[in-house]
Write a protein that binds this DNA or RNA. Sequence first.
DNA 1: TATGAAAGTTTTAAATA
DNA 2: TATTTAAAACTTTCATA
Lengths: 153, 153
Amino acid sequence: MAVRIDDLDRKILVELQADGGQSLDDIAKSVGSSKTPVWNRIRKMRDAGVIKHQTYLLDAEALGFEACFFVLIRTSEHDASWQQAFLKALQDRPEVQEAHRLAGDIDYILKVRVKNARAYDTFYQALISEVKVHNVTALLSMEEIKSTTSLPL
Amino acid sequence: MAVRIDDLDRKILVELQADGGQSLDDIAKSVGSSKTPVWNRIRKMRDAGVIKHQTYLLDAEALGFEACFFVLIRTSEHDASWQQAFLKALQDRPEVQEAHRLAGDIDYILKVRVKNARAYDTFYQALISEVKVHNVTALLSMEEIKSTTSLPL
DNA sequence: TATGAAAGTTTTAAATA
DNA sequence: TATTTAAAACTTTCATA
C-alpha cells in the first residue's frame, strides 16, 4: 500500500497538514515551486488516496465535550461474528473517535469523546448490552497535553 | 469555556467536519440557509475559537507509517519541574500525535505513530533517557478499526 | 438576511522547456 | 515528462440595501 512520494510532494503535504486553508500560490511559494505543478501533485495524491480528507478541527471543550476516555477492552470471544458485531457497534457510535485492535492481552483500545461522565456511562451500558466483553478499563483524561493529526513527514 | 451555539451553527459545523472542501454555497444549501449568514457564522465561530484549524488528513499506511502504539506511562515523579520536562519532551517529538494526563493509577497515555517497531524503540530510548518514568507499557495497534476527528454534534 | 460587485482562487488548456 | 503562462469558471469577502 506504500506510495512513492518525492521531496516536493512531501513538502506539499507538510504545508497541507500545517494549514489546510492556504492558497495554491502560498503553498507553491513555501515549497519553491509554482501553482500548476503543486495543483497536479495534490490531485495525484488525492487520487492515490494519500490525501484522504479535508476537514476543520473543532475545539471539543468549547462545544461542551468535556470528557475523554481511553477504554481498554479484553474479550473472551474471538470468532468472526462477534468481531463483526463489535465493529459495527463501534462504527455506529459517533462518540467513538478511534478504535484499534491490539496485539497482546488487551484486545482493543477506544478513544471516546462525550459531554460528561454520565454520557460515558450511557455509552458504556449500551455497548456492553450489544456485545459481550470480558473486561473493560476506562482511563479518564484530565488534560489533553498534545493533540495533532499531522504525520511526522 | 463553553460557547453558545444554535441549531444552524451546529449544522454548519457538521458540514465543515464532514467535508472541509465544500463551497459556502454548498454548505448553505445543505443547512437550508444562504451564503452570507453561513459566512458570518463561520467567521464568528472561528473568532470564538470553536473552529480551530483547517487541515488535510493523510493516509498513514500509504506514507509508510505502519506502526501505531498506545503507550501507558506511570511515573513516581509528580513535581512541577519533572512535569514540565516531560511535557516539553512530548511537544518536541512529532511522532507523538496525542498525549493525555490521566486520572487513576496510569499517569499518562500517548499515541505514537512511527514507520516501524525499530523507530518506536528509538523513540522510547530517547524519551526515557530524557525524563525518568517508573513504568511503561506499549500497546501495539494491529488494525485501525475506526478513526475520525469529528465530534458527535 | 439578501443581493451583487470586487478581489482572489481553482481549474483547465495551450505553449514551452 | 514536468513546468510556465494564460484565461475561464468559480468562491470568498464585504459593502450596501
